[in-house]
Amino acid sequence: MTTMTSTAPAASTKTPHTSGGGRRWRPGRVLLYVALTIGAVPTMLPFVWLARSALMNDNQIFIAPPEWIPNPFEWANFSGALTAQPFFRYFVNTMIIELVVVTGTVLTCSVAAFSFARLRWRGRNVVFALLLTSVMLPYAVTLIPTFVMWRSLGALDTFVPLTVPAWFAGAGGGVFNVFLLRQFFLTIPFELDEAAYIDGASPWRVFWLVIMPLSKPALVVVTIFTFIGVWNDFLGPLLYLSDESKYTLALGLASFQSVYTAQWGYLMAASAVVIAPIIALFFFLQRYFIEGVTLTGIKS
């Protein structure tokens, strides 16, 4: 008794040329990385210059042609800069303002965005359009009236003018945050809201239990933008703060420069310390930042 066997043609074992990690090698991808690397060089140059200058003395910083590697390393610039001015006090003042402003901005802007994106009420689109037109209003136009208002309220030389506007969505540059969150909220399926309403949830519970947990990327973007804006704010503290013990890091850095006009090593070291938290913040949250910005414009 014989058995009939059939053999199928052997599958081709030829595989496309791949690079490390199994990713297919494509000339377009290589060119993209090369272009990004070339574009990153001028972007990183100011940070490299700041780092090398922070570790040099004044004679080395301005030598021509420039030296990129300090010799010797002036590590004393950091200790000298941080002790010449009360930077710890400036840091505490800045973090107090950051905590109040970031909390108020995220909370009030998300509530306003929820109303514009998920609730239906008469004149909603008209009000939102009017809100967006305020973006075209230059900051300098409202600068003097705002200063006069806070002076009449006796709030000068306090943190009130720097923190209270953040608790009113749309004030202090919050219009952009409202717009960004509204666009992100529109990408969330409305069926989730309807299911929650059927179960007896109120709009407030839908906001807290449905929308907010699903909006972490957009909330991270708003947090980063707000944090950086407060951290780098120089004009606001300059206008409203006169007591040196209430200075923020931006003002402290400026006063440090006015005192040590010839000690550039100290100034560069202090600047490096001030900018380091911003770089670290973006480094750890860049995934959420990119995701939030990418998903924001999907639905209008």
Results as ranks from 00 to 15, higher is better:
132 L>A: 14
132 L>D: 15
132 L>S: 15
133 T>F: 15
134 S>Q: 15
135 V>G: 09
135 V>W: 03
136 M>C: 14
137 L>F: 13
140 A>S: 14
141 V>Q: 11
141 V>I: 12
141 V>R: 11
142 T>F: 00
143 L>K: 14
144 I>F: 06
145 P>I: 10
145 P>A: 09
149 M>I: 12
149 M>D: 10
151 R>A: 07
152 S>T: 05
152 S>R: 12
153 L>H: 07
153 L>K: 07
153 L>V: 01
154 G>Y: 03
154 G>F: 01
160 V>H: 03
162 L>T: 10
164 V>H: 02
164 V>S: 00
168 F>E: 01
168 F>N: 01
170 G>N: 15
170 G>P: 04
171 A>F: 14
173 G>Y: 14
174 G>T: 01
174 G>A: 02
175 V>G: 02
176 F>V: 07
177 N>I: 14
177 N>F: 15
178 V>E: 01
178 V>G: 00
178 V>S: 00
181 L>W: 13
181 L>E: 14
183 Q>S: 11
184 F>H: 09
185 F>S: 13
185 F>H: 12
186 L>D: 11
187 T>H: 12
187 T>Q: 13
188 I>R: 14
189 P>G: 00
190 F>S: 04
190 F>H: 04
191 E>F: 00
191 E>V: 06
192 L>W: 12
192 L>D: 03
197 Y>P: 06
197 Y>N: 01
200 G>S: 04
200 G>W: 04
203 P>N: 02
211 I>D: 01
212 M>N: 07
212 M>C: 06
213 P>C: 03
213 P>G: 05
214 L>H: 15
214 L>T: 15
215 S>Q: 02
216 K>D: 08
216 K>R: 10
217 P>N: 11
217 P>K: 05
220 V>S: 09
221 V>S: 05
221 V>G: 09
223 T>H: 06
223 T>A: 07
224 I>A: 08
224 I>W: 08
224 I>R: 08
227 F>G: 13
227 F>V: 13
228 I>D: 04
228 I>M: 05
229 G>E: 13
229 G>Q: 02
231 W>K: 06
234 F>G: 12
235 L>D: 07
236 G>C: 06
236 G>S: 08
236 G>K: 02
238 L>V: 08
238 L>K: 09
241 L>S: 03
242 S>W: 01
246 K>V: 05
246 K>H: 02
247 Y>L: 01
248 T>G: 02
249 L>H: 11
250 A>C: 02
250 A>D: 12
250 A>L: 12
251 L>S: 07
252 G>L: 07
252 G>R: 10
253 L>D: 11
254 A>W: 12
254 A>K: 11
256 F>L: 12
256 F>Q: 01
258 S>K: 06
259 V>N: 11
259 V>T: 11
260 Y>G: 05
260 Y>D: 04
262 A>T: 10
262 A>M: 09
263 Q>H: 11
264 W>P: 04
265 G>T: 06
265 G>F: 09
267 L>P: 01
269 A>Q: 10
269 A>T: 08
270 A>G: 10
271 S>F: 07
273 V>M: 06
275 I>H: 02
278 I>R: 05
